[in-house]
Design a binder for these strands. Sequence first.
DNA 1: AGTCAAGCGGACACCGTGTCCGCTTAGCAC
DNA 2: GTGCTAAGCGGACACGGTGTCCGCTTGACT
Lengths: 189, 189
Amino acid sequence: MERADAARNRQRILRAAAELFAAKGAPNVTMEDIARAAGVGRGTLYRRFPDRAAIATALLDTHERELQERLLRGEPPLGPGAPPAERLAAFYAAMVELLEAHAHLVLGAETGRSRFETGAYGFWRVHVRSLLVAARVPDPDALVDVLLAPLAPEVYTYQRQDRGLSPERIAGALRRLARSIEPEGDRRA
Amino acid sequence: MERADAARNRQRILRAAAELFAAKGAPNVTMEDIARAAGVGRGTLYRRFPDRAAIATALLDTHERELQERLLRGEPPLGPGAPPAERLAAFYAAMVELLEAHAHLVLGAETGRSRFETGAYGFWRVHVRSLLVAARVPDPDALVDVLLAPLAPEVYTYQRQDRGLSPERIAGALRRLARSIEPEGDRRA
DNA sequence: AGTCAAGCGGACACCGTGTCCGCTTAGCAC
DNA sequence: GTGCTAAGCGGACACGGTGTCCGCTTGACT
């Protein structure tokens, strides 16, 4: 179990990190910054969180779990019951909401290669793959990462900031993509 | 115009960098490594190439230009003449070949956010966007980055290495994706 | 041969990372 | 409340990579 001062410091670290990420963007925040803002030493910071990504992941965790819960046991079309293409479209919409709300965190936690190593990616992957299987799409293992690629935080922020697209337009494009997923030979049937 | 010794050093730098990238993977090669292997000082290296990405980009340039040429003026289905969905499928196939042949370079040049800032991305974007316009797809501006996302080098190497997928399977998934691009209301028509 | 600017390269300062170790303090037993 | 102990703390430190600066060298042109 965790000592009281340790728990207090964990809270202070997370609070300070959240503010800094929001203010300056995760990639521009150093571990030193966080330690100073939280009023703890560098050693204390590293004791719990090996790097910036771990802190961002901890901050994201709640939100991601909540979405995961809704995917597993929520109402359709997000939860079970709706046709696979509709569930995929609903998943995309929910991810756009999540990216929109926490872009600065995701950009700190799931950037570049490390994106694939997070538990969250594994979860999204299993979920979407099961939808593809249900839709009887050929070779779901190859398609699943292709369909998850546009949800990379770099892509989303490029579309939002550099391209000036609204969340709605991005969600719309993803929705059309989701609905185009059909079994081989079933198109124009 | 460029002095003879300068041109010689440029060649030595590019040659040395190509070997190091292939041997150790671009992200693990430091500017110092390249300078030493090329037999030049750090100052000389920085004079021409501001960072590792610039070197990798220079090495990729030839191959990318060649593909761009084929897209503009080559035979169908890559070049003009074929239906948009087929041209998109051919583009995906060509990109898979390029990624397969030069993954270590692309991983050095077009990783993370910087991918979107390269001239190459702009070219691919214009090309695919024009195909979407020709296919009368709604909101091509939002869809184009979505369709280019799976070509991010991180995604490709994840599929190849962590997932053990063959280039053919990846290309197959992308081909099916390309063929599912159709005008609104035209599906199942 | 002389001039001079382009080119060169190593030394240097800086920044962020991650570790290590002596000090502090919470938690507990009595 | 006192004393013990291990968990927790934090600053100092070493390291590695980056990018710049400036005195020296050398190619190119006359």
